[in-house]
């Protein structure tokens, strides 16, 4: 595989990624991060325009893409809420894409409907990068998670990884678990009973050769882990407040929970957090979640640069 294979390619779903694709993107991102560190700014995308179409607000993701494009030397146009755009006048997504592709060289789309990015990619002649389509996919989040892990440990193979929180509805953890299945990892799925990982995903992981353990007990599991990936547990998933409070208390990552953790344990979280991770963890060597935010930049630079064909 080389860079020419990526020119014009859409980034819609992790399902379209082979392990080779993933490794290639991570390699390119790593090289860009190093180069950016040395030079301060790059100009690969000079004269290129990114359009960010955010039909629902996601400030973090949008800023990360826009920052990545600027770091590559390109420029950005776009909108960040559907109410301010032609969408409100009832224009179809397909028509908006056909218009915007004439103003830009690459499109980043965030849309509340499942499958919107696939449709946009079919319509557009410029590459489309999915920044979240409803409850379906958010591939750049998965890639930046993998990048963060590889950067922190120097490898992904051989790690014992815990996924904690809402494993039933959490798109981020589903996608990450499926991508991790390409690697030689052992997975601990830690969640309250009612938020367990869907059976079909657990089966798929096992079929791909991953050793999967399920647990409801965070404290017991923590000492076994090299990495703990924490996600939010949403109140609305619970029938009553009392049940929710009980669960919330027993799944908070704090100094007490980490008392028996390996010294090298790293903790990740896609952010924003509420109180799944106590601030007392922030200053410890375990906290990896702010590095994770930074990883979005090189990974998105790599994807923008590759699909634009400027690297």
């Amino acid at each position: 595989m080389d860079k020419t294979d990526w020119i014009g390619r859409d980034v819609v779903s992790m399902r379209d990624f082979s392990k080779e694709d993933i490794e290639f993107v991570l390699d390119v991102a790593e090289a860009l991060e190093d180069e950016l560190g040395k030079k301060g700014s790059l100009d690969y995308a000079r004269g290129k325009i990114l359009a960010t179409l955010f039909y629902e607000p996601s400030t973090r993701t949008r800023l990360s893409f826009e920052s990545a494009m600027h770091r590559l030397g390109g420029s950005v146009i776009g909108f960040s809420s559907a109410s301010s755009s032609s969408v409100k006048k009832g224009e179809s997504l397909a028509d908006t894409i056909r218009t915007v592709e004439r103003y830009s060289d690459v499109i980043v789309l965030r849309h509340p409907l499942d499958g919107a990015a696939r449709l946009a990619a079919e319509v557009a002649s410029v590459p489309v990068i999915n920044a979240g389509d409803g409850s379906n996919q958010h591939p750049t989040q998965t890639l930046l998670d993998l990048y963060t892990i590889r950067r922190a440990f120097g490898r992904i193979d051989g790690l014992t990884i815990g996924l904690l929180g809402d494993l039933k509805y959490g798109r981020t953890v589903h996608s990450l678990a499926e991508a991790l299945a390409f690697y030689d990892v052992e997975l601990y799925l830690i969640s309250p009973e009612i938020l367990r990982m869907p059976r079909h995903i657990v089966e798929e992981l096992r079929e791909m050769g991953v050793e999967v353990h399920e647990s409801t007990n965070l404290e017991e599991t923590v000492p076994k882990l090299d990495l703990l990936y924490v996600t939010r547990i949403q109140r609305e998933r619970f029938p009553d407040e009392e049940e929710y409070m009980k669960v919330r208390g027993s799944y908070q990552v704090n100094a007490a929970v980490l008392r028996n953790a390996k010294e090298s344990l790293k903790v990740m979280h896609p952010l924003p957090r509420v109180d799944e991770i106590h601030p007392e963890v922030d200053g410890t060597g375990h906290a990896l979640y702010f590095d994770q935010v930074f990883s979005g930049i090189p990974v998105r630079m790599a994807l923008l640069g590759l699909t634009l064909g400027v690297l």
Partner: peptide, 12 residues
């Protein structure tokens, strides 16, 4: 069957 699927909202 997914009501949130784009194929149920756009002419496709």
């Amino acid at each position: 069957p997914n009501p949130r699927c784009v194929s149920n909202h756009e002419a496709v």
